[in-house]
Design a protein around this nucleic acid. Structure first.
Length: 203
DNA sequence: CATATGATGGACT
DNA sequence: GTCCATCATATGG
């Protein structure tokens, strides 16, 4: 039996706040007759029309921003970049513009054998230590767009983690050519599944 | 149809 | 650290 997912209101706040609060939570993927699970250890916040790094920035002539504005908090969207699927969750609107959280890395908890098969690697620290790696390990692809992680019957949900003291670090976002001035990447200190550890700023 | 572009990953020095 | 294969999109001919 799988635990109840986090409620939709958890995702209704500002992306940076949700990105912080998601650290230590558990990403659960119902995969065929198995369950894959991982602790979220690295996230990034993204905004809409005014965020130059966002796929929904006003300079991009995509219909993503239109779709995004209509999506409920907790809705999954999966985007292809550099041949990798990236997992995102819709969060609250700021001044009418959408925001979202990118899940960049998780720590494998359950179903490691299946993840190793999906990724074709044996080293556990290489399974999910990056945004493209975790989607591959969890078998997540674009057809999951539109699911909601706060709905019990969804194939991808997020549940609360165990109570533990976590130390959160932040930095600039990774791999973007034009970032916003604030730190919008958040990750757990001293966790080997975090993809990169440069520009560390401890809280 | 051709080509450019990334919220990347992996191989290599 | 550097180099490049990757592939869904977007855009131009």
């Amino acid at each position: 039996m799988i635990e109840k997912p986090l409620p939709r209101c958890f995702f209704k706040n500002d992306a940076a706040r949700v990105a912080n609060e998601l650290l230590g939570k558990i990403l659960v993927r119902k995969y065929k007759n198995s369950v894959l699970a991982g602790k979220i250890v690295e996230t990034e916040a993204y905004y809409g029309a005014d965020d130059p790094a966002s796929r929904a920035h006003k300079s991009k002539k995509t219909n993503l921003s239109k779709w995004w504005r209509c999506a409920l908090p907790g809705t999954v969207f999966v985007y292809m970049v550099h041949g990798n699927w990236l997992l995102n969750i819709v969060t609250g609107k700021i001044n009418g513009e959408p925001s979202g959280v990118l899940i960049r890395a998780v720590e494998p908890l359950k179903g490691m054998e299946i993840m190793m098969k999906n990724r074709n690697v044996k080293e556990i620290e290489k399974l999910t230590s990056g945004p493209g790696k975790l989607t591959s390990a969890f078998g997540i692809a674009q057809y999951h767009t539109g699911l909601n992680v706060s709905e019990q019957n969804s194939d991808i949900i997020v549940i609360k983690g165990k109570n533990e003291n976590i130390k959160i670090c932040s930095s600039h976002r990774i791999g973007v050519s034009e970032d916003l001035p604030q730190n919008l990447r958040f990750y757990l200190a001293n966790n080997k599944f975090v993809s990169k550890k440069n520009d560390t700023v401890k809280h």
